[in-house]
């Protein structure tokens, strides 16, 4: 068994079998992460460049840790303080990195499609760590994996994605992943933060957070991405928190428990109150833990496609 793709550009390109293979491999890496020595030598002859043109904390740390746990050599690049500021193009920057003999590139970029562009033009395996508001495949994988871990399987589960759908790459990747795995998806948020034609992806749309919570088994709460919002999408954060914020009182008023997820970073008191984020049904920190195992699985399975010298 191997992946059907040579790059991880988005969940859209993956098959259900790919997702299962990634999950099964991640199960094995989770065991590795609980050993006294949390490291395997598989990728010791692979060099990986983490190229981040946008800020990131947990994704970048998680990728770097996953790479080191697999014994890969790692170089880090961030756009701030680099020659990008001097006007170097994306292709030139990456080709210069590749000239230093790098086999894999993990890239985050503000432009949707940037990793797809790279995959067409350079000889290296590309992992998309978030491209603008398009896709964030490893986040969707770890979200679905965390649901599988908590609920046994993803198929048949009802998942509500609540919050800023328009500006979220996590939402789109999650919709693809959950649907491929047989879950039902609903998105919920103010009409201004839900793309108009999203229903065409086969998801339900709600503008009432209580209605979404009553329907779902799992609520994946997204961050209000103030940095991506050019205009005014809602009157104030206070009003958003009042109408769409999730707190313990709201969760307790439902007739059954709802698993709470959040891809981080949390705007505490806006989309999620502390008593809900840290509550008994929250699996937010499990998501972070699973992120390393999932990224190890992705890197391992993609490295497998880079054939060694014969």
């Amino acid at each position: 068994m191997s992946l059907s793709v040579n790059h991880l550009l988005g969940i859209k390109n993956l098959t259900a079998a790919d997702l299962q293979l990634i999950f099964e491999t991640a199960d094995k890496f989770k065991e590795v992460l609980n050993r006294p020595i949390r490291k395997v030598p598989s990728l010791r002859d692979i060099t990986i460049a983490n190229v981040f043109f946008e800020n990131s904390t947990r994704t970048r740390l998680s990728f770097e840790l996953a790479e080191k746990r697999l014994s890969a050599d790692v170089i880090n690049f961030s756009a701030s303080g680099s020659s990008v500021k001097k006007g170097e193009t994306l292709l030139d920057t990456v080709n210069n990195i590749l000239a230093m003999k790098v086999e894999m590139i993990v890239m985050r970029h503000a432009s949707p499609g940037a990793p797809h562009f790279l995959a067409k033009h350079i000889q290296a395996a590309i992992v998309n760590a978030g491209d603008g508001t398009h896709e964030h495949p490893t986040q969707a994988l770890l979200d679905a994996y965390s649901i599988r871990e908590k609920h046994g399987e993803v198929a048949g589960k009802k998942v509500a994605i609540i919050g800023d759908i328009s500006h979220s790459r996590v939402a789109l990747s999650n919709i693809y992943a959950l649907q491929k795995l047989g879950a039902e998806v609903m998105v919920c948020g103010p009409p201004t933060l839900i793309p108009r034609y999203l229903g065409q992806l086969g998801v339900q749309v709600s503008h009432q957070v209580r209605q979404a919570l009553q329907w779902c088994d799992v609520a994946n709460v997204l961050r209000i991405q103030l940095e991506r919002q050019q205009g005014k999408y809602f009157p104030s954060l206070r009003e958003y928190a009042l109408y769409y914020g999730i707190n313990k009182a709201l969760l307790d008023s439902l007739n059954r428990p709802v698993t709470i997820m959040h891809p981080g970073p949390i705007n505490r008191g806006v989309e999620l109150a502390s008593d809900a984020a840290d509550g008994e049904h929250s699996i937010i920190l499990d998501q972070v833990e699973n992120g390393v195992a999932i990224r190890m699985a992705v890197l391992y399975l993609l490295a497998e496609k880079i054939k060694s010298y014969n």
Partner: peptide, 20 residues
């Protein structure tokens, strides 16, 4: 599986469960 010396040199390897 993760310690084998034929990784990337032939058919894909499928890991089994470790229980220690």
């Amino acid at each position: 599986t993760f310690y084998r010396d034929d990784f990337r040199r032939g058919a894909p390897l499928k890991a089994s469960q470790t229980v220690m």
